[in-house]
Design a protein around this nucleic acid. Structure first.
Lengths: 110, 110
DNA sequence: GTTCATTTGTCAATTGTGTAGACAAAATGC
DNA sequence: GCATTTTGTCTACACAATTGACAAATGAAC
């Protein structure tokens, strides 16, 4: 069987954002939401490199958008979670929640 | 000011375990708890490498244990969170909880 | 007090993850 | 056609995670 690997810190965040954006997740929207929600700044290339890695690991599926975008610019590449991606996200989420249990008070400090 | 960096996936888990173990956290106990609680297996050297990195970043403080251990073996090196370590942990915890919000149901799947 | 097993920690080298910067494709408006 | 906007790709590097071999420091056996 496969050797178990773990999601990197950014990989996990990106999977979560893709999950939240449903069918509308593409490079720039993911990058923007990460900044807006948690202040995580990424260059475009950092986002794409990680997205591509997640695709090649089988955690994300991808497809090119329709070429008829209305407002100029290149076609979007959309991303969505695979079953394997959901499973990986679930596993790392469970581990984190387990380890955080009992320490939630720390989150409330100034 | 410092360029902002982020805790790696393992770094975060290790800080959480150190936080939980209070004054008793040392290399092997940390490694064992990670395995026991969340099934995360680490070689000893993987644990120490990461602990050392966290020390050099200023997230952990360390001291050698008393040399009078009762049951043989080398003296233990103990670890504890610094204020900076608590702050880093808080920041990454907040980001994770924010991104997980609304997706908790995923954690309950088979 | 030398040898043995046990427990813990260190080092060197490699692979995997995250980052930035320069570049280019594909569309629109003039 | 040419400039502008939006999005994606490529190359190269820095940082994080992992392994395997090694060694220090103690107690126990003799």
């Amino acid at each position: 069987m496969n050797k178990t690997t773990y999601l990197g810190e950014l990989e996990q965040m990106i999977l979560l954002v893709v999950l939240g954006q449903g069918d509308d997740a593409y490079g720039i929207s993911i990058r923007n939401e990460l900044d807006k929600r948690v202040g995580r700044k990424l260059s475009r290339s950092a986002a794409y490199t990680t997205l591509e890695r997640l695709v090649s690991k089988g955690y994300l599926l991808t497809r090119m958008g329709d070429p008829d975008a209305r407002r100029g610019g290149r076609a979007k590449r959309y991303y969505g979670l695979s079953a394997k991606g959901r499973a990986a996200l679930r596993a790392s989420g469970r581990a984190l929640f387990e380890l955080w249990a009992g320490h939630e008070h720390l989150l409330e400090e100034a």
